[in-house]
């Protein structure tokens, strides 16, 4: 069987595809990559063509690092996202670039020096049986992943992937197209209960610096900073979209991410642009961020431009 063996799972490594869609009605969240842009680049470097906006080949999301794999067959891999030192057979290997591996090769990720999440993709994608139409691992829901029960990767797991039918070209994402990690400016589309926040409260939110706290995970990032107070304490529970900024009574915002609950009753100021959630997802506890408001039309323009840029991007060929 073509594939890889997990020698060491690292701190928290999850199989992720683009996410689980169409099941919010029974309360299932979407899951999927926290840094979607890095995930898509990793797949593209491995020749995994996207079919449609919400399907994509399954890759490994590595949080902080520590993953060690052994190749069981010939294949092509790429690692993108956070600055995580990568070695193949103990030789340093570049991120944001395709590498060929052969049986017995040891692929080792160190620990992030900048950012927090890396993506390891393989030609053809990792193969696992889908549950509710997706392989996305959601530990909180005990769904998805290799055994369909939401477990992170563990030592000894065998990760199947298709046998390669041809050798892929070695490609590299040009420097200028790689996102910069570090403190983030997050664009916000005001919405939901925005009228429950006075102008002064909004000004305070948009002029303050917030810090990611220890209680930040795939479900959401809890922030600490200027306390903002909505004029209402709770609402009739309603649907929560990706990036929603919810403000509980303690006034400390929570930004809801890939593994968010589908319904909730705290007032929400609006939602962060998904492109910027990818930057947020790379922040570690203690890292800082700021917010700026944009209109829904600006948001759509930004999404279309980013998509156009991704589609039109020319990858560099690596000379061997």
């Amino acid at each position: 069987m073509a594939g890889f063996k997990v020698i060491q799972p690292g701190i928290f490594s999850l199989l992720q595809d683009a996410g689980r869609y169409g099941w919010h009605g029974i309360g299932l969240t979407t899951g999927g990559p926290m840094d979607r842009q890095a995930f898509r680049w990793a797949n593209r470097l491995c020749g995994n063509n996207e079919s449609g906006n919400h399907t994509n080949s399954t890759a490994i999301e590595v949080t902080v690092g520590g993953l060690v794999l052994e190749a069981k067959s010939h294949s092509s891999i790429a690692v993108t996202g956070a600055e995580i030192p990568l070695t193949i057979n103990r030789q340093p290997a570049a991120l944001w670039q395709t590498h060929q591996v052969k049986p017995g090769d040891r692929i080792e990720l160190g620990y992030a020096t900048q950012g927090s999440r890396g993506y390891l993709a393989v030609a053809g994608g990792f193969q696992a049986e889908a549950i509710f139409d997706s392989q996305a691992t959601v530990p909180r829901e005990a769904l998805g992943g290799l055994h369909r029960e939401g477990q992170p990767l563990k030592t000894g797991d065998n990760l199947p992937c298709p046998a390669p039918d041809q050798q892929l070209p070695l490609l590299r994402v040009p420097e200028k197209l790689r996102p910069a990690n570090g403190s983030a400016l997050l664009r916000v589309i005001l919405g939901y209960q925005q009228h429950a926040f006075t102008e002064i409260q909004k000004q305070l939110f948009f002029s303050s610096e917030y810090k990611a706290t220890d209680s930040s995970d795939r479900m959401g990032y809890r922030l600490s900073g200027a306390q903002i107070s909505p004029s209402i304490g709770g609402i009739l529970s309603e649907g929560i979209c990706l990036g929603a900024i919810q403000v509980p009574a303690d006034g400390q915002p929570i930004i809801l991410l890939r593994d968010r609950q589908t319904i909730g009753g705290y007032p929400k100021l609006g939602s962060v642009l998904s492109l910027d959630l990818d930057r947020l997802a790379q922040l570690m506890p203690g890292d800082t961020m700021r917010f700026e408001p944009i209109s829904i039309d600006q948001a759509h323009n930004a999404l279309l431009l980013a998509e156009q840029k991704f589609t039109a991007a020319q990858l560099e060929t690596v000379d061997v």
Partner: peptide, 14 residues
């Protein structure tokens, strides 16, 4: 349509 979240008195349309 990507997904829907029906609730008590609201419907989120994604």
């Amino acid at each position: 349509l990507i997904d829907l979240v029906p609730s008590y008195a609201s419907l989120l349309v994604i």
